[in-house]
Design a protein around this nucleic acid. Structure first.
Lengths: 158, 158
DNA sequence: TATTGTTATACTCTATAACTATA
DNA sequence: TATAGTTATAGAGTATAACAATA
């Protein structure tokens, strides 16, 4: 009574298992690439903060925290390091005096571009042997994951 | 001369961009779920080490390090914490006296099962609205990523 | 009172360097 | 000499708690 398994049944649970198994492996690779840039290496959160600021110049600390999915104290420390390294400017908001205005410095924009290019190329190299269909499959999977996890991250459940 | 874009061209580079954007978001969610288990929370590396030991009882520290993709000093510290918490046993290898033999304690096996169940169910809940086709797409994408990143992680390039 | 941001504290991850012990 | 593992050190991520300043 064993059914010939042409394609295994995929459930949310089995999919979750696959995600738990694979995501950390890929994450580690990305981290390694970010860190490889010897003199000017970035952590993944630092990189993501720079990406966010490149898209949202003048953003507040809270908005960066929301994007990163971490608390404000964590973000405050992270931003402080980026400011000290000369990658980000932190100035007072003219009207709302509680707020700060964050933006990339020219150096920050440059370093971001560099890190992004290197990481993208290194990841692309790993993907080089995949077929167009397989690449599309991965991209589609990423889009789906982004859609469902983007706004689920805080704590929507228990 | 603008081609009607039915389906965007997916290149290794564009796929790499998607990966860089999405993986950290999902990773953060997984970390949050692991940490949620208040009293007995696990970090993702701790969780992964326990998973590995459940599959490879008696493994050496080096093999755990290889699986995690981190250095041996890092692994030594991580294992030390698991031993102190009573989740892992660390005994001398009978023949190769340089080696240690790592294994889960009954408590470790139990906590692993608990953490795994909770995290899987929480992730599955996020995936609940996806169709079977979409779930299969994600699982297929994970399998592809696992295949290419599993052995690329160290430093195969520059 | 609620929000923005910081500081203090504590813990984990992580690597490199230097070490011990064993093979 | 090479390998297995540890320890020391340093820096980053991270949260919670407590705080300051502003709205």
């Amino acid at each position: 009574m064993v059914e010939p398994k042409v394609t295994a049944k995929v459930t949310p649970e089995s999919c979750a298992r696959d995600i738990m198994e694979t995501i950390p492996v890929v994450m580690r690779f990305i981290r390694g690439e970010m860190r490889r840039q010897r003199t000017r290496s970035l952590s993944v959160p630092q990189f993501r903060a720079l990406v966010f600021l490149s898209r949202h110049p003048g953003a507040s600390l809270s908005s960066v925290a929301d994007y990163l999915g971490v608390t404000r104290p964590t973000t405050s420390v992270l931003v402080e390091r980026l400011v000290r390294r000369g990658l980000v400017t932190r100035t007072a908001h003219p009207e709302e005096r509680r707020r700060i205005v964050l933006a990339l410095t020219p150096t920050g924009a440059h370093e971001l571009q560099h890190a992004r290019d290197v990481a993208r190329n290194r990841i692309a190299a790993v993907l080089a042997d995949l077929s167009p269909v397989e690449l599309r499959n991965i991209s589609r999977g990423m889009a789906l994951l982004e859609r469902v996890f983007k706004n689920a991250s805080p704590q929507d459940g228990s």
